[in-house]
Amino acid sequence: MTRSVFRFWLPLGFTLLVSAFLILPVLLSVLAGVTLNWQRGPAGGLTFRWVAEVWGLYADTVLRTLLLAGATAIADLLLGLPLAYVLARHPSRKARLMEELIMLPVAVPGLATALALIILYGGWQSLRGGSVFILIGHVLFTLPFMVRSVLAVLAALDIRTLEEGAASLGAGPWRRLLTVVLPNARPGILAGALMVVTLSVGEFNMTWMLHTPLTKTLPVGLADAYASMRLEIASAYTVVFLLMIVPLLVLMQKAAAAASGGR
């Protein structure tokens, strides 16, 4: 069987072209990060010196970023799970409205949200200067993703009827929560948590406004490196960033597939 030009080769070529368009800048940046001297090009020799230097300069930033992402995920779980559960149990117009409302921080530019936070909490010095301030911003921005992810799974399951089934067999509220609601919401919780961690690690707009020189995160440090250091170090920073974010993205894909495709 011969493969038709129009039905196979053309779409394949187009796909490859788009992929190249998306990935080429990233690849070049990575290459720059491991090149001894970008003026002379890769032919002049490759090195991990710049990556090591970035690690030396920004290790605390990496750690803070990870801790922030973890804390964001935990806070989102504590706030988002009950919220998603309530919304799933009471699918009314008001619930829809509430869902839209928590999406607002995503639609509004991060800078505007950050400004609003500074106006609200700025006078509170101990808060303004710490990482918790950034955490508040990240939770505000990522919470809707957690809620939506869990809500989608709960709604598809018709959690209300499942709980009624459990109740008819004698299960009280806590037992229903532990044996029926949470186990069945797990794919949504997992997908939501990975999404939230990924968003938190990569968030720049809001964090840039909220940070202090002592509370930089990875993307802010990246901007810092681009602005103040040689190109190779800034590019090496990209390598570090990718090493952290790509595994998260892959896990997220898998979790999303598990959540939508059933067990």
């Binding site: 399951l157 018709d158 009827t161 499942l162 009624e164 089934g165 459990a166 044996t179 029926v180 186990p183 069945n184 797990r186 059933g262 067990r263």
Partner: peptide, 9 residues
Amino acid sequence: FQSYALFPN
């Protein structure tokens, strides 16, 4: 139940 409400987990 009409939708059976069996626990998928």
